[in-house]
Amino acid sequence: MYKRQVYKHLKVLEEAGLVTRPPGPQPRSVRLERDVFDEVGGWIEQYRRRAEARYQRLDAVLRTMQDEQRGSEK
């Protein structure tokens, strides 16, 4: 298996909130998020992380919108 595919799988685990990786260049250490497996707290925390991931994508969309707005004002 290619490294690229392994990173792709790690990304899915990361999106599911099961592992975390510090930012920076590859290779990065991978940490298993044990709290997520704690039954009740885990559902909520995992749900929160998915919401946070979604809102980080929204942050990026807002930045693009602001760049476009500034561009059109020039």
Binding site: H9, V12, L13, A16, L18, V36, W43, Q46, Y47, R50
Partner: peptide, 17 residues
Amino acid sequence: WLRSGMETGVNEGYAKL
């Protein structure tokens, strides 16, 4: 609802593993 995402995530994770 809260659990569903969890299960999807975990099952996906296990499937990949």
